[in-house]
Design a protein around this nucleic acid. Structure first.
Lengths: 267, 267
DNA sequence: TAAATAGTGTCTTTGAGACACTATTTC
DNA sequence: GAAATAGTGTCTCAAAGACACTATTTA
């Protein structure tokens, strides 16, 4: 998209343009990587090694470089922390999509910083590596974070979050909860191959609601018939009591035709 | 949200912070106001009076001031152009929500400009007024814009759009089309009070698909029973042949329990 | 064999498509 | 009365909740 001035006058205008004519802001891309660890919906956080908010936990992210766009910066940050390579169409192992942009003038005490936040969803993420400006990196269960995310009302609970990152995480969790209703995004929360009970447990974890196993299964069998998930014709290996479950992989469609009914809808 | 440095060291850090340490960008808020005019889904555009893209049509918008956030700037731009006051919860006459943020490094030929785009939805918008930096302002039918929005493949068709605004408009139209499936947003595309056939025509206009009048009505009667629309117990005035339709207003809920089935789903 | 988990069959209710039919208006 | 539009009744099919029942594994 190289811009061709449409006239000499426009070329002259651009040559004379003063880029300091309007106030400017610093631009960061921050990633909310959501995954299920030990049966809990969890988010990747890094412990800040530098001021401001030194010692607090923050979303992985960083400044958008002069020659990259925010999507690229977010994918780069995600890859640096986890080794995961992103895709936004449900084909890869990670789903990465722009969540929202946070622009409050005082959200960063240093200077005006605007953050383009991304939601990433993946299963089986390796233990993260702390980047150069981080003291540590780990997954935190979302339920262990402070008020407002899962109804956790204990003000002493949870970790100290930097900037407005609690709000960003809450928005990402809400987006994920909503998208499970009308996409196959839950298939990215489980490692392939997965079973229908695996998928049900992923829904239950994100929604914090029990689902009817039989109803869930019948719905998923219908979804498999239209290639939203795909049976691989094999069953899981034993190792636990009970009949082994049939194995599936992700199918070729991302959006559902009908919402998957979350219990207690009616918002 | 005034930030309290947690230590003297942090206070000293902030006092010494050099805000030019990272590259900065200019920040704009642009508004895609969608409405139905003369039976066509239309978008508010302004004709640029200044370079760059002088004479091209662009979304209303402008730089975000140093003490405002992008939401406020978008609401201000919308109010300046149309006199509409925004609400994001479905209670007001206008729905305004953040759409996405556009960050390609070369999207503006002047300097790096990042645009936080908003989607606004309203009915019965008065004729717009051209702002100071606009030669004109008017609604354009989305179908008259160039390729990619409604399957219009004629390269000669449509108006010359500035920057990446064609893409932003396409994203807003896609968002609106999607949201009609799981929200009552269509009720903001019709003036109150409205009839069920009015609402059906709004869906048909946005989706560019005919809907079954009987099925649509039965669905809306069910939605009325749970206060997503609310009968006012009166019927429209005559003036045309045919039985007068019952009148409704918007109800107290924004989200639907089940998707409204768009014809030709199965994406 | 008991316990545990996956999966099937069947009944009932509800929503949605199809379509014949009725209701209320203008001309 | 004809034309036009809104609204009802009814049949059929598919999806979802409930729940009894069967299947396959470990210990």
């Amino acid at each position: 998209m190289t811009y061709q001035p449409s006239s000499e006058a426009e070329g002259a205008f651009l040559a004379d343009y003063d880029p300091t004519a309007y106030p400017t802001v610093a631009l960061t891309a921050d990633v909310v990587l959501l995954t299920i660890r030990d049966g809990q919906l969890s988010v990747l956080l890094v412990e800040r090694a530098e001021h401001p908010y030194r010692g607090a936990w923050a979303l992985p992210g960083g400044f958008v470089g002069p020659d990259e766009d925010a999507d690229t910066a977010a994918a780069r940050e995600l890859e640096e922390e986890t080794g995961l390579e992103a895709a936004s169409d449900g084909t890869g192992r990670v789903h990465l999509e722009q969540l929202a942009t946070y622009t409050a003038p005082d959200r960063d005490p240093r200077t005006r910083v605007v953050s383009v936040a991304y939601m990433a969803v993946a299963a089986d993420v390796a233990d993260p590596v702390a980047g150069s400006d981080a003291a540590a990196a780990r997954f935190w269960p979302v339920a262990d974070l402070a008020v407002g995310l899962t109804g956790n009302e204990d003000p002493e609970a949870g970790v100290d979050l930097a900037f407005d990152h609690e709000r960003i995480i809450a928005d990402a969790v809400a987006r994920l909860r909503g998208k499970l209703e009308y996409t196959t995004l839950a298939t990215l929360l489980v490692a392939e191959p997965f079973t229908i009970p695996d998928l049900r447990r992923a829904y239950e974890t994100v929604w914090d609601e029990q689902l009817e196993p039989v109803g869930f299964r019948q719905r998923m069998v219908r979804e498999a018939a239209v290639d939203r998930i795909r049976a691989i014709g094999d069953t899981e290996a034993g190792g636990r009591p009970g009949r082994p479950a049939a194995l599936y992989r992700r199918g070729g469609h991302f959006f559902l035709d009908r919402t998957f009914p979350a219990p207690g809808a009616g918002r």
